[in-house]
Design a protein around this nucleic acid. Structure first.
Length: 301
DNA sequence: AGCGGTCAAGTTGAT
DNA sequence: ATCAACTTGACCGCT
């Protein structure tokens, strides 16, 4: 079975994951701030349950959870622990209920921490805050049963091998809750599949193959070969990313994402695979519905 | 209710 | 020097 995955949000369905800004929350007195944050966390748990039901009802097989599902959770000044928020225990229960719901609906859940989350930095403070963020996402992942926390290689700082050596060092220090979920994805600026595949094999980190990034930043590997090597890095259902360029492959910048997926961008090598394909398209669930219909018509799903 | 300025965080390459 | 890209425009204070 091939799953198509939705990333973080909906376009037509009225499901919102509310957040706040540090400035706004920071202006409040502590009690009011805790009340506000608790309300946001509660609303996000409720929205997640809605999202899971909506995915299941629309033939969407996986859902990527937004990094701000607990808003400002790891902010250096405003970060908090759920037990310190009013009703914190109930909020955790709501997330665990989302986990049970996802299991019942057969949905896979994933995380994709922001671009700021780097394990390659030369600055230990950056790595430290990245690890804090990974630990937060891993805790929520445990509640809801998410098996993936996906990040990029980060910067190269002029020496990719040295940067990847720092990633390896950081990975080896991660707590099991993070380490067991951590996966690495090729990006469209720095780290290609050819850069990451040997690293992923050596360190037993599953490799998320983003074919759009690969087409924007090629490395001599063909799509078929990269697919085959990526599949071999997984000890569970493999995860791929798919998108189409906003202004076509002849446009000024092929990196930005189109509203929908052009079927021509769906790799022949992916036909009929038992994998999760996260669809990175602006039209969200509408793009998935269209792609799914097109794949089904061809018998490729 | 609608509008516009603003938003925690790092790195890269195009302009 | 600024901007856009990276997963996603949404929030908030003002009128």
């Amino acid at each position: 079975m091939m799953r198509l995955g939705l990333c973080c949000k909906f376009s037509a369905a009225e499901i919102k994951f509310p957040v706040t800004t540090a400035l706004s929350a920071g202006r409040l007195k502590p009690a009011a701030r805790r009340a506000k944050l608790a309300g946001l966390c509660r609303a996000n748990a409720a929205a997640l349950a809605q999202a899971l039901n909506c995915c299941a009802a629309n033939g969407i097989g996986s859902f990527r959870v937004n990094s701000q599902i607990l808003p400002l959770k790891t902010h250096p000044a405003l970060g908090y622990r759920l037990p310190d928020l009013p009703g914190g225990g109930e909020i955790v229960k709501s997330f665990k209920a989302c986990g049970a719901l996802a299991r019942r609906l057969g949905l896979r859940l994933t995380f994709h921490p922001d671009q700021f989350i780097l394990l390659s930095s030369e600055n230990p403070k950056i790595t430290e805050s990245a690890v804090g963020e990974l630990e937060y996402q891993a805790e929520v992942a445990g509640w809801i049963g998410a098996d993936v926390i996906n990040i990029h290689g980060g910067g190269a700082y002029g020496d990719k091998a040295a940067a990847l050596a720092r990633v390896a060092k950081a990975i080896n220090k991660l707590k099991p809750a993070v380490r067991s979920r951590l996966v690495l994805e090729n990006d469209d600026r720095v780290y290609t599949p050819a850069d990451l595949l040997p690293f992923c094999r050596e360190h037993r980190v599953p490799f998320v193959y983003d074919v759009h990034h690969h087409r924007c930043l090629p490395d001599g590997l063909g799509v078929g070969k990269a697919t085959e090597l990526a599949l071999a890095t997984w000890n569970r259902e493999p995860l791929f990313h798919l998108s189409s360029p906003k202004e076509g492959w002849r446009g000024p910048d092929t990196r930005s994402h189109h509203d929908y997926i052009d079927l021509k961008d769906f790799p022949a090598a992916w036909r009929g695979l038992d994998v999760t394909i996260e669809v990175e398209a602006k039209a969200k669930e509408l793009a998935i519905a269209r792609l799914r219909a097109q794949l089904a018509a061809k018998g490729w799903i």
